[in-house]
Design a protein around this nucleic acid. Structure first.
Length: 222
DNA sequence: GCCCAGGTGGGTA
DNA sequence: TACCCACATGGG
């Protein structure tokens, strides 16, 4: 990797953080809620996910055992506002199966172990791909697994830090290698907030077709 | 009406 | 491997 890219990535965080402050991610009250949100937000705006989670809470089923007890079509009806609701109900049930049947619904136990092994277990769940797995690892667990998403890809491409067609694992490796300019003890918080900052910038400034991103905190790096 | 949103899996060549 | 497609609600 080019040293200039490493330095740009580190400077990017200082710029974003200075502009927005710490983002305190992931939005969610419990690790379980983080997992549910991670599945529901697949290719979906967070606003719609919030509606779905609110409905789960209102129905009193935002709990591993109670949610697992629901029939798939009941669950689908609850998460309907999140879109792709039949697909997501199936994915949630696949996730809940392993969580409840093998670990008593305990997210902390389910996420126990070496990051690489837990990640592999997550990826074995149909409907959990790399981004969802890494979101769960990083935000519901305390695993150092950098999250790459559409915003990350777009921002990195626009700045020439990575080609637009770069593979997920390559982007993740790029970030994991470059972003170790913090003591180990606070690396987790750094990576959590780094991804949150990228989402913030992606939403507010880095629009898909906009020729320019006026006011973007990363403008000095263009 | 159109594009977009914090992806993933299945099918086909 | 590389494309293509389905999946769906809600906002701008």
């Amino acid at each position: 990797m080019k040293r200039s890219t490493t330095l740009a990535l580190r400077r990017a965080y200082r710029l974003m953080r200075r502009r927005h402050g710490h983002q305190n991610w992931w939005p969610g009250d419990t690790p379980f809620e983080v997992c549910v949100g991670a599945i529901l937000t697949q290719n979906t705006s967070w606003r719609n996910v919030e509606r779905a989670i609110a409905r789960l809470k209102a129905a009193g089923v935002l709990d591993p055992v109670r949610m697992h007890a629901l029939a798939e079509d009941q669950l689908a009806e609850h998460v309907r506002p999140a879109g792709y609701y039949r697909v997501k109900a199936r994915r949630l049930r696949a996730f809940l199966g392993g969580l409840v049947e093998s670990h008593g619904g305990r997210v902390d136990r389910w996420l126990e172990g070496p990051t690489i092994e837990v990640r592999r277990r997550l990826l074995d769940v149909p409907g959990i791909g790399p981004e969802t797995a890494d979101s769960i690892l990083l935000y519901a667990g305390e695993h150092l697994s950098f999250v790459v998403d559409a915003y990350t890809r777009r921002i990195f491409a626009r700045h020439g830090w990575a080609p637009p067609e770069a593979a997920y694992d390559d982007l993740q490796a790029l970030c994991a290698t470059a972003l170790r300019d913090r003591p180990g003890a606070i690396l987790l918080d750094y990576w959590r907030d780094y991804h949150a900052q990228l989402v913030r910038v992606g939403k507010d400034y880095c629009r898909p077709r906009a020729p320019r991103c006026a006011g973007c905190p990363l403008e000095p790096l263009l």
